[in-house]
């Protein structure tokens, strides 16, 4: 193991946490929608990809990255609202596999529409000028943009947490997730609550997409890899637990990073190995409520 120093291990750990933050960002919309609606959104990756393309479109129209950060979650969130209202809503109460299959099919349609509109070839997505280059973080150099994504993930989580835990609307959402019937009896229009949750979840997926674009470019298939990663994070953290998703995301990041250091060819498998181990020991994940899937 040539060149292994303490500094390197520290950088590697940091890179893992930063990657983990990106995983959390990828997973949080999925986890939110599952936790509150028990809808397994297989189109999550497609919303992510659409987010990147909406961002691309904003740039093509002469806008800048910062404008895209505002426009993308709104546009993708609205698409989410439409999907919930007209496609997902008729399926509530029919079992978990109905919306799952619906969103699965929807993801194909979304990818295909993007291919028709933008072509099958990928597009470059340059890092915004302000965030280009690497900075010295004391233990080594790290890309400024990744630090920015780290911060953005923290902000998204904080806002989401404040919204769910500290606002009265968040209270209704949480109550609706526990027992929709009682909430309905109390005179709350639960279907509107679910509409909002779905819109917020897809909006965050879109935001994650545009934030990922400068890291990996834009291509119609970019959602498929992150869908797998987001599922692992959600499953390991416990389906439906946002706190669990955060811890699981960071853990997955660190596991990938450390595997990369010692056996890079195993990095991809390590994610799934971790998931298998967690599921064997704790089938509901770190903070999952048992029986949510049944």
């Amino acid at each position: 193991m040539a060149g292994l120093s303490l500094d390197l291990i520290a950088v590697q750990l940091f890179a893992g946490l930063a990657l983990g933050a990106i995983y959390v960002l990828f997973a949080i919309g999925l986890s939110l929608i599952f936790g509150m609606l028990t809808v397994v959104n297989f189109a999550h990756g497609a919303f992510f990809m659409v987010g990147a393309y909406v961002g691309l479109f904003v740039l093509m129209m002469g806008g800048n990255f910062w404008l895209a950060l505002v426009v993308v979650p709104l546009v993708v969130g609205v698409i989410g609202l439409i999907v919930e209202r007209f496609l997902v809503r008729p399926l509530y109460g029919r079992g978990i596999d109905y919306p799952l299959l619906l969103t699965f099919g929807l993801s194909y349609i979304m990818v295909e529409l993007i291919r028709i509109a933008f072509g099958t070839t990928g597009y470059p997505f340059d890092t915004p000028e302000l965030l280009q280059g690497a900075v010295d973080i004391g233990i080594g150099y790290f890309p400024l943009y990744r630090l920015f994504v780290l911060g953005a993930a923290a902000v998204v989580l904080l806002v989401l947490w404040l919204f769910l835990e500290k606002t009265s609307y968040g209270l209704i959402i949480r109550a609706g997730a526990r027992d929709p019937q009682i909430v309905r009896v109390l005179g709350v229009d639960v279907s509107r609550v679910w509409l909002v949750v779905f819109g917020v979840g897809t909006g965050i997926a879109g935001l994650a997409g545009v934030l990922a674009a400068p890291l990996q470019g834009v291509i119609p298939e970019m959602g498929s890899t992150i869908l797998a990663e987001a599922f692992v994070v959600t499953v390991v953290g416990g389906m439906g637990s946002i706190g669990g998703a955060v811890i699981a995301g960071l853990l997955v990041g660190v596991v990938v990073s450390m595997t990369s250091l010692f056996a890079p060819e195993m990095a991809k498998v390590s994610i799934f190995a971790l998931m298998a181990i967690v599921l064997l020991v704790r089938p509901q994940g770190f903070f999952g409520r048992a029986g949510l899937m049944s």
């Binding site: 950088v11 990369s260 890079p264």
Partner: peptide
Amino acid sequence: TVIDVRHPLGTSDFSTLLPRIQAL
């Protein structure tokens, strides 16, 4: 050859592979 890092096909994030190369 100072190092030969092998990454899996279809890797979408290389951030955990690059610091080592940089350090060498």
